[in-house]
């Protein structure tokens, strides 16, 4: 693990290196260098298996955080590469040339977060939501409860209880 991180540190300007387990580390890289970094990891460091690509919405900072998790099957370790991209006209370089299946993740992210990946094959196709015309539902400014109440005819009479309050009332 250590020598992989050292190798990456030598070549790339990475920060926030967090080691979660012996076999899992997170590193943060700037947006422009990220694809170069994972290309280097795939070609030279043996991280040949692509685990997943996901996003987090940091609405307060106006940022999306993309996480590419890569796996080295021989050394049995995972390294997750994080990168921050701006929330306004969010766009990221496509990584589908490294692994074909990344295109599907990018299609999902475009639909759910509105992050665009130019040149990714089929990125504008419907993934799960067919004909969605609201803001992307995984963005945190999308009020899913309000949307569901307006759209899906909620059945009246549903009650919700805070479990702690409810048990207090019940036991007293």
């Amino acid at each position: 693990m250590e020598n992989y991180i050292e190798d990456i540190k030598l070549r790339f300007d990475v920060k926030d290196i967090v080691s979660r387990r012996d076999n899992l580390s997170f590193i943060t890289c700037e947006k422009e260098k990220t694809i170069a970094l994972i290309t280097h990891m795939k070609n030279n460091l043996g991280f040949t298996h692509f685990v997943l690509l996901t996003a987090v919405d940091w609405i307060e900072d106006g940022l999306f955080q993309l996480t590419y998790i890569l796996n080295n099957p021989n050394a049995k370790i995972d390294i997750a590469v994080r990168t921050m991209i701006s929330r306004e006209n969010s766009e990221m370089e496509s990584a589908h040339k490294l692994w074909q299946q990344v295109a599907t993740y990018q299609r999902e992210l475009r639909e759910m977060f509105g992050i665009n990946f130019p040149d990714s094959p089929g990125v504008t196709d419907n993934f799960i939501l067919e004909g969605w015309d609201d803001i992307p539902p995984y963005r945190r400014d999308f009020d899913t409860k309000k949307y569901a109440e307006e759209t899906y005819f909620p059945r009246p009479g549903r009650e919700t209880n805070d479990p702690a309050e409810y048990m207090k009332k019940k036991l007293s």
């Binding site: 799960i128 939501l129 539902p137 999308f142 899913t144 409860k145 949307y147 569901a148 109440e149 899906y152 005819f153 909620p154 059945r155 549903r158």
Partner: peptide, 19 residues
Amino acid sequence: TINGGMYWDSYNTINRLDH
């Protein structure tokens, strides 16, 4: 299918099938 169950506030699942 009755009232949405645990997905009652989801953006993509229906609440009442009888509609």
